[in-house]
């Protein structure tokens, strides 16, 4: 207990920041898994729960294979090294790691599979190494990770693997990219179906500068739909994807 308090105080003192009063080291969800997950993903680094990190999910996983999740870390824009998201009670906990590099708003959305009711976490690491954790609870009837992908019963994906549909929307903050990739995103947890999923996502501008990098894990839903927000509305971008079988996909957006 003493050690926990010390970890919490160090970043507060060093950074000289005044965190909102809601910031604390007590897991708002009271999850049994918190300490284990924290050590796994945050390496015992200093952390605090921070209400400014928004994790938006519906209250109930209506379809446990397609649960929408939005993470909004704009409150810490400009000071973000990476964002790691996970679900405490999924058999594979890690969902994604996101690194904003330039010209993006640190806000993204995607859909995931959940195996049972679980907290969903988004830990945002600032440049000083501290993790600011946003959290939300989702209730579920369960089974999302051990249900075969729809694609497994339908050979459509075999001839359309990696096909990317995309659309750019003009928004007051710049542009929003929404895209959908045809990919089964098999978790490896279903009988005799090996894991097969997109692992890397990179968004680049025309000059080849990377705007963001993202590592995905198996809980990302089949045929992923991802949303990113960029600050510029006048540039064109392209998207690079790679899956765990080494397939690479590229698309001008």
């Amino acid at each position: 207990m003493k050690r926990l308090i010390r970890i919490g105080l160090i970043p507060l003192l060093l950074a000289g920041l005044s965190f909102p009063s809601a910031a604390s080291q007590t897991d708002p969800q009271g999850s049994l898994m918190w300490d284990y997950m924290r050590k796994l993903f945050l390496n015992d680094d200093p952390y605090l729960f921070d209400e400014r990190i928004k994790v938006l999910v519906p209250e109930f996983a209506e379809d446990p294979t397609q649960v929408p999740v939005s993470v909004d870390a704009r409150a810490l824009d400009g000071d973000i090294r990476q964002i790691i998201a996970w679900a405490d009670f999924n058999p594979i906990q890690h969902i994604f790691t996101y690194r904003p590099l330039r010209d993006v708003h640190p806000r993204l959305s995607l859909r995931i599979k959940v195996q049972q009711a679980t907290p969903i976490r988004a830990a945002v690491q600032t440049m000083d190494g501290t993790w600011h954790v946003g959290t939300a609870q989702i209730d579920a009837a369960g089974g999302g990770c051990t249900t075969p992908s729809v694609g497994n019963a339908d050979p459509y994906w075999e001839s359309h693997l990696g096909e990317i549909s995309s659309r750019r929307f003009s928004r007051d903050f710049g542009s929003r990219y929404k895209f959908k990739v045809i990919h089964p995103m098999d978790t490896g947890l279903v009988d005799l179906i090996p894991e097969f999923y997109l692992q890397q996502v990179t968004l680049k501008d025309e000059a080849g500068n990377e705007l963001l990098q993202m590592d995905l894990s198996q809980p990302v839903s089949e045929n992923p739909v991802l949303t990113f927000d960029t600050k510029n509305s006048d540039q064109s971008h392209y998207l690079l994807l790679r899956d765990n079988n080494g397939n690479e996909f590229e698309q001008a957006l």
């Binding site: 929408p68 999740v69 929307f169 949303t227």
Partner: peptide, 11 residues
């Protein structure tokens, strides 16, 4: 048409 994300629409 406005590019809203599913959670935004839910809310």
């Amino acid at each position: 048409e406005q590019g809203l994300e599913m959670v935004e629409v839910i809310n």
